[in-house]
Design a protein around this nucleic acid. Structure first.
Lengths: 212, 212
DNA sequence: ACCGGGGTGTTACCTCGGGTAACATCGTCG
DNA sequence: CGACGATGTTACCCGAGGTAACACCCCGGT
């Protein structure tokens, strides 16, 4: 039997274990699930990171492609954004355990590099950056803004999505609305609440100042 | 010597090690830095998480208090938001290593709980949620929006801040502007770029299978 | 028929980090 | 003094990542 099919079987086993036990599953457990022992896993994937990487690349394909497609959808911008958000949330909703594996950076990376975003998410961030750069007119700051926003939006959706997944407080569509509203400047547009807890806030009617 | 001062000394040692070696520093290393051996650390902090928690609470105090104060500042809303962003970025800029410890969830937590946000950041998220709830008029969806936005904004700033810290692409004030602009709906307000030619830059045949 | 290579698999071991048990010491308070 | 509460130690356990050495099995080439 050539290497590839066997690899797939092993990945399937790993997938099952992680689906069941979460991303912290041990190599022993994965090997056992596959009906074999550790060294074979190491032969195929080098080390744990190799396994994880192979596993993520498998799933990332789908999510990343879906997000990329959503970003290129010929819709009104707001609708497109909602579509992207919905695509991501639907993706993580489908397989929470695997999704955690994708989204959370590898635990003990000795390289103190800043890993707020796991590789899979970094790809999504880059995708967003590219989309913004090519679709939105942001003037001279274009590049900086697109990059910062790509990361920022990804992180926003990651954190919010994580919370939503953990304690489903509302339907997916409502969540999409909430996030899209945030990106749409609703925070800026909303009125002040009258009685703020500020001790001596001079009542200056600060109405919504429009965007930029 | 009563417990507390000793605790402080140990925390100082841990701080130094982590400043130097990053968050993956071993208990042995920390003990050595303190001139003692492991069991003492465990007597004081129970387990590694206890140590980390104590360490984070120490630093979190400052950052959290600063953010909270910034959130309560009697400024125009946009200025307040910028002030909060600047406060956070200044905080992480001051001590990157410690900051990573604060912001990145403990590696191998067997409780498959969704931990996109480390405890320290969760507190900040709650702070933002409270601030939004008490200061902004969001109508009926108030609670849901405030919670979702609290998480989302925190995640956004985390991811963007991480990137900024890693590869300082611009000054802090410009970064603050970029993020504030994002929250202010500049994405919605900006014009379309004329030639919306979909570039479609596919990387490599990453074998997209599962349709998510 | 033989053999070698590339696949399969195994047992047994190493290292390292988190965590604990058992024991020894010092100072203070009753 | 004795007891207590802190200090500290050495030596160990366990589990997880990772490796070495060995064994089998099949298939194609000479």
């Amino acid at each position: 039997m050539s290497r590839e099919p066997r690899r797939e079987q092993l990945l399937n086993a790993a997938d099952r274990v992680i689906q069941r036990e979460g991303p912290a599953a041990s190599m022993n457990a994965i090997a056992a699930e596959a009906g074999i022992t550790k060294p074979i896993l190491y032969r195929h994937f080098g080390d744990r990171n190799g396994l994880i990487r192979a596993l993520t690349e498998r799933h990332t394909g789908g999510l990343l492609a879906a997000v990329r497609a959503a970003l290129a959808e010929p819709l009104e911008r707001r609708d497109r954004v909602e579509h992207v958000l919905d695509t991501y949330l639907a993706g993580i909703e489908a397989r929470p355990q695997v999704y955690r594996l994708l989204t959370h950076p590898e635990p003990g990376d000795p390289t103190g590099a800043g890993n707020a975003l796991a590789p899979a998410l970094r790809q999504i961030a880059e995708e967003i950056t590219r989309a913004v750069q090519s679709q939105v007119d942001l003037g001279a700051d274009r590049d900086l803004l697109a990059e910062a926003w790509g990361r920022g939006i990804t992180g926003m959706v990651l954190a919010a999505g994580d919370w939503w997944l953990e304690s489903k407080p509302c339907s997916r569509t409502r969540m999409v609305q909430a996030l899209a509203d945030l990106l749409w400047g609703r925070l800026a547009a909303a009125a002040d609440l009258p009685t703020a807890v500020l001790p001596a806030a001079p009542a200056e009617p600060t109405e919504a100042n429009g965007a930029v």
